[in-house]
Amino acid sequence: MSIDDCITILTVRGVTLEAGLSPTEIIGVEERFGFEFNPDHRRLLETVQPTGERWLDWRNDSPASIEARLAWPLEGILFDVEHDSFWPSTWPKKPDTRAEQFQIAADRIATWPMLVPIFAHRYLPAHPFSGGAPVFSVWQSDVIVYGNDLVDYFLHEFGPVDVQRIGSAPDVGPDICRPWSLLAFGSDVVD
């Protein structure tokens, strides 16, 4: 994955790019919000901070706004649990009360890889997921692989542009970032 390719795509599409975050700023974000950026996301943010509508601005957005974006995947799945459209077959028998349902769902999802927002409802898995991580579009329990890696995602979201892809990640399969990738492939067996 090339950060230069990412920057080219974003520049061509008119995304405002501010100076990258300093190592101190990145560590501060990670410590405050309880995760580590995966290597690709970290390299992008060390180089540039995309800003504007629907971008998460790690330097200037309020802590409450960042926390809401981090909570979006869990809250969306809990919404689907509440409205009876989501209860995987691998989970225990569905309890009768919403409180018990929410507790089981929250406990299960807490074991899943944390997703970190990039743009709108597009997310990368946090570290320890390695570089070349897929980008997911997450809308409640509707999860889509929106890019095989960060460059592929930017091409899908902001392209097409004339960018040479060198060393692109292979197509993502259902096991690359379980259980998020299993949801993306329509599996009822998520964990």
Rank of each mutant, 00 (worst) to 15 (best):
M1P: 02
M1K: 00
I3N: 10
I3M: 13
I3Q: 05
D4K: 06
D4S: 13
D4N: 08
I7A: 02
I7Y: 01
T8M: 13
T8F: 09
I9F: 02
L10P: 03
T11V: 07
V12Q: 09
V15D: 14
L17C: 04
E18V: 09
E18M: 13
E18S: 10
A19E: 15
L21C: 08
S22G: 09
S22N: 11
P23W: 12
T24V: 15
E25C: 03
I26K: 01
I26T: 10
I27W: 11
I27E: 15
I27G: 08
I27M: 13
G28H: 00
G28F: 00
E30F: 03
E30Y: 04
E31M: 03
R32P: 07
F33L: 00
E36A: 12
F37K: 01
F37W: 13
F37T: 04
N38M: 00
H41G: 08
H41F: 15
R42S: 11
L45A: 03
L45V: 04
Q49P: 04
G52W: 11
G52I: 11
E53K: 15
R54W: 10
R54A: 13
W55S: 05
N60M: 10
D61L: 05
S62H: 07
S62Q: 09
S62G: 10
P63F: 00
P63Y: 01
P63V: 00
S65E: 15
S65I: 08
R69V: 02
P73G: 06
L74Y: 01
G76Q: 04
G76F: 02
F79R: 10
E82W: 05
H83F: 14
D84S: 10
S85C: 07
F86R: 02
W87T: 01
P88N: 08
S89K: 04
S89N: 06
W91S: 14
P95D: 12
T97Y: 04
T97G: 05
R98C: 05
A99R: 15
Q101F: 08
Q103D: 15
I104L: 05
A105L: 10
A105Y: 05
A105Q: 07
R108M: 13
A110N: 13
T111Y: 06
W112G: 08
P113R: 08
P113D: 09
L115D: 02
H121C: 14
Y123H: 05
L124I: 10
A126Q: 04
H127N: 12
F129I: 15
F129P: 06
P134F: 11
V135T: 12
V135I: 13
S137L: 15
S141V: 06
S141C: 06
D142A: 12
V143M: 10
I144Y: 08
Y146E: 15
G147V: 05
N148E: 12
L150I: 14
V151T: 14
D152V: 00
D152T: 00
Y153I: 05
H156F: 12
D162N: 05
V163A: 07
Q164M: 13
I166Q: 03
A169C: 14
A169Y: 04
V172A: 12
G173P: 09
P174T: 09
P174G: 12
P174R: 14
P174W: 07
I176P: 00
I176W: 04
I176V: 15
R178C: 07
R178K: 11
P179T: 03
P179V: 05
S181V: 08
A184C: 10
F185V: 10
G186Y: 07
D188V: 07
D188T: 12
D191F: 14
D191Q: 12
